[in-house]
Design a protein around this nucleic acid. Structure first.
Lengths: 237, 237
DNA sequence: ATATTTTTTTAGACTAGCCTAAAATGAACC
DNA sequence: GGTTCATTTTAGGCTAGTCTAAAAAAATAT
């Protein structure tokens, strides 16, 4: 099959493809994958994501194109073929299931699991992953609220919006985050803005768009617009 | 730290060192690691174990010697340094804990887990392994009865003997196996000669040393000497 | 429309780990 | 002690993936 390194490139290309979609203002979207042909991904963007140089990326792109995993024409960027997309989603499936394992079973914090899952995800055994999935109780999302693709590469993107576009008086539930950095996740945990937390939007400051919210009927908290636009929520119930 | 490949060499050298110890006839031994300087391991033996050529082994031995993981002098074979031995035991610790996970939690058979554990063992995170160990309930042995080294590289080799040297009338408990091939393990499982099974030695055939045993007070079974000398047991209670 | 800047690709070189073929060493036998 | 044989090491070369520097193409600005 594909090497460790090839898998990382596929994952990077997939992630960059996704990034170029979605609504810029945070309003409700169901990224159901039904979106038409994605924009081609740049060599430099891939280089940054896999922490290497553009020249190395070009080499790998040729290799992936030979293997029919990407559509590639010199200087024109790349998109995944259907085979490549399935492969990428399979890696993401493995990654997210391991994250659930690390958090739910081993007791890691949601900010600690990314890099471990990046290693675990490269163990290619469908039997292992299927058994792991069953053992975890067939979870639908990972600890950050990101959906877990199924066998066939189907992803159920839950409909959600960012906390920043919620209106005063509304009550919503945290369903995910857009930013995955460790420091951000640790901050959210500290203020209790974790997955499934209930948020009552009390006040929206017109000037800087900062928010005054009540979390789980208890703690009144100020959060910045920057934070709010990286937290995904959906209507209660 | 050490690469994936280096780890496999260390593991191979450790295993070959162990193999050259132990009693040849199957009588009780507590391989408590207290044995003096082990015999040096040959280049060819390592080559066979890591499925490569002797020339490649020589290359790697130089590298491991540079890193102070082995004692190496040209044409004289190698032994592990204390650092190397600790590293090897740490890999084995990871391997065996993952095996317990695969069997106890995911429901794999004891004959299926070796190769998956060979991949999982290379994820180097003490925190991961310690949490996994706790999650598994601090097991002392893996699904084949092999002891799990602790943090510090201590291995508690349980005192045991092979089933082939048990005397008629004795009742013993299966504590492990010496042969780990998938077909052997599947055979043992089929006849119920699994870990912790209670075995009453009924008759020992003088001619071919085959045995007639009763397993768990139920099934009377014939097994060959070849099988018996690969099953480890200890006195009941 | 041309010049400049940015992006991407090519060219050539490096490392880890592997290989084959040949040379060196050690062991075994007379 | 010398010859033969097996084992081990050296020498030189291969691939995957990386790098730097330079060339080529595309995008941008004038």
């Amino acid at each position: 099959m594909h090497s460790f390194t090839e898998e990382n490139y596929l994952k990077a290309i997939y992630a960059l493809t996704q990034k170029s979609e979605g609504s810029p203002d945070g309003s409700p979207v169901s990224l159901s994958g039904a979106s038409s042909d994605p924009l081609p991904v740049n060599t430099n963007a891939i280089a940054e994501r896999v922490a290497t140089k553009a020249a190395s990326v070009t080499d790998m792109l040729k290799k992936l194109a030979d293997k029919q995993l990407i559509h590639y024409q010199k200087y024109q960027g790349v998109t995944l073929t259907e085979t490549g997309r399935k492969a990428a989603l399979n890696i993401i499936r493995r990654h997210r299931l391991w994250e659930v394992f690390l958090v739910d079973k081993l007791g890691f914090g949601w900010h600690e699991v990314h890099s471990l899952a990046e290693e675990l995800e490269h163990i290619r055994s469908d039997e292992l992953i299927d058994k792991l999935e069953a053992f975890l109780g067939n979870p639908q999302v990972d600890p950050h609220g990101d959906p877990i693709p199924d066998h066939a590469g189907q992803v159920r993107h839950p409909v959600s919006q960012t906390l920043s576009v919620t209106e005063a008086g509304q009550t919503v539930v945290v369903t995910g985050v857009l930013e995955h950095s460790s420091s951000f996740l640790q901050y959210l945990e500290k203020i209790g803005l974790v997955l499934n937390a209930e948020v009552l939007m009390r006040e929206l400051n017109q000037f800087d768009k900062s928010l005054f919210i009540r979390i789980n009927h208890q703690s009144d908290t100020f959060i910045s617009h920057e934070v709010a636009r990286n937290v995904l929520v959906s209507g209660k119930g």
